[in-house]
Amino acid sequence: MMKHKKKIDLFEIINDTILILIAVICVYPFLYEVFIAISDGRYLAAGQVTFFPKGTNLEVFKYVLNNPKLNITLGMRNSFLYTLFGTIVGVVTTYITAYALSRPQVKSRFLIMGLFTLTWVFEAGLIPTYIILSKLGYVDNPLVMIIPGAINTQYLIICKTYLEGLPYELEDAAMVDGANQFQVLTNVYLPISKSILATIGTFYAVGIWNQYLTPQIYLKKSEYKVIQQILRTLVLSSSTDGETMQTININGFALNQYNMKAAAIVIAMAPIILVYPFVQKYFKSGILIGSVKG
């Protein structure tokens, strides 16, 4: 193996180059939005901006964040809050449930797990779900982002698989010491579950942050809307009227709807991109637990 590495290998050069190119293609579109956002609006309107920005102006971010009509700040705040609380509730509920379902003392665990799996595989669909949730008072109620999705069956399985993999003797030993089952959970299992908690936590967080359909159906009041909905209204809706994103001039630069749309996109994806380097290892481990053991 080492011998190969020393040689100049044509295959490897080509292979590395192509793969790096693919990596660039994967990531470039995100950069492209940044370039569009900071380019001078006049060049954009004239169709003169291609791969790289033309003119640079960072005012656009300040402008879209401070323009209350665009609702971007509001959407970001809501998304943050729903993600924060949704993740806490999701992780706690999922972990506790997975723990109880991983205990052999709980005789009904197979039945309960089976029911979870059944409702996971057999989708009721949007409409029946809507009818139930609306009767429970979740329409125009921000809790819809936090409570109904508190247990994702897939993550429950991942968590349960992990807990079942831990030696049962841990519980026995603690029980002999006089601990009750709650203390076993908090003192014995919780400290060694940090990685799995981080994994499902990041899954929940990304999942809630990225949700579009649920808020679109349930959260109609503008004060509850999340950034993904705001983004759709600003970028994809054909009837956004021109007044909300009218061209303005700042310091000799034109800011037009193209700048503002791109800036909105950049702002909406920024949190994920910023935390991605730190959490990607949890995702990888989660995927591997989920797929290999399942």
């Binding site: 509730v89 706690v92 429970l136 008072g137 979740y138 809790l143 819809v144 203390q183 908090t186 003192n187």
Partner: peptide
């Protein structure tokens, strides 16, 4: 030790409260 227990109990009750909160508003 007890503190942790209290915290987890609290979290569990919070959850319960949350689920029911939804019902409570319509009711």
């Amino acid at each position: 030790m007890n503190k942790k227990k209290v915290v987890s109990l609290l979290l569990a009750t919070m959850m319960l409260g949350g689920v029911l909160a939804g019902c409570a508003t319509t009711a």
